[in-house]
Design a protein around this nucleic acid. Structure first.
Lengths: 161, 161
DNA sequence: CATACACTGACGTAGCGTAAACGTTT
DNA sequence: TAAACGTTTACGCTACGTCAGTGTAT
């Protein structure tokens, strides 16, 4: 189970404690034996965790069927909660894509510094013509290359709470 | 700061303790005042956290410039670590996209259950012709609609550790 | 002066990691 | 029999949440 789902034994045991997984039985020596469908369950849980869902949210999703009185009701509930999660995923994907884009732009812009031995580094990169030549620096570039008041001699201009 | 970055005050204070943020000064009453660039820093940290990076990883990225002796060295280090993170982001985006796709397919397939009042629910959805008509059910559908041995009467076929 | 807001401890929580001591499987 | 692996118990860790009690900003 653990290896096939790229989890640790600790995680599998923890999920059992939480009532998310259940072994079909134990060996005489106490080792857990799981059904095949339980592995798919674990893999789904793993992916949802990676997507940022809490175990409580995941439990709620997994419990939809048994909390419904009919197939129609279960289907309606599931459709609703799935739609919400799909939407959250869409927004998260946008966030991550924007971050990735920002980092890539930074990596690109930063290539003009590869041969830099300018003595103004690290205190005064702002006055460097190579960087001033770039229209609008990506945020990660601004943050990573700023001195930020962290090293004395420079800093951000305004202050607020 | 907190509001502009969609964080809590607790988080801002925690990041200060961790050395990630630093107010330019305090008011006479003790309130923190931050520079404008510190907000961009916080927003970058927030996005990276949302992307799953640990605070230690983030600290390492933020410290690249000051840990380098020259602009060229800093640029080389940053390029390297950014490339790694960009790649991790690419893989994560794929994972989330696959999950989203799976959930959407499930939501779609499940629409055939919307009018279901079949008494075989919830124990025997497997034998339902409507579902058997679907070529290959998405994983989340299989997991959500299986009885899984969790309700007595049915279950996965093989067992293993 | 009132109301909203921020401050400093301090303990609580989620989701595991990790080590110890031991039994099981192969 | 030895090497590899699993089990329980229990404490540790990260990244904050959530009070309480008090002072500050407007």
């Amino acid at each position: 189970m653990a290896r096939h789902s790229n989890n640790t034994l600790r995680t599998v045991r923890f999920y059992e404690e939480e009532g998310i997984l259940r072994p079909v039985r134990r060996t005489e020596g106490g080792h857990r034996l799981f059904g095949k469908s339980e592995l798919e369950r674990l893999m789904l849980v793993t992916d949802m965790r990676a997507a940022g869902l809490s175990l409580d949210e995941i439990k709620q999703i997994l419990a939809v069927k048994e909390s419904a009185a009919s197939g129609g009701e279960a289907s309606k509930m599931a459709t609703k909660v799935l739609a919400a999660k799909i939407d959250e995923l869409r927004e998260k994907l946008q966030e991550l894509t924007r971050l990735q884009d920002d980092l890539m732009k930074t990596s690109d812009v930063m290539s003009v510094c590869l041969e830099c031995h300018d003595p103004r580094f690290p205190l005064d990169c702002n006055s460097c013509a190579r960087l001033q030549a770039v229209p609008n620096l990506p945020r990660s570039m601004r943050v990573l290359w700023s001195t930020n008041g962290r090293m004395k001699g420079s800093g951000g201009s305004g202050e607020s709470a």
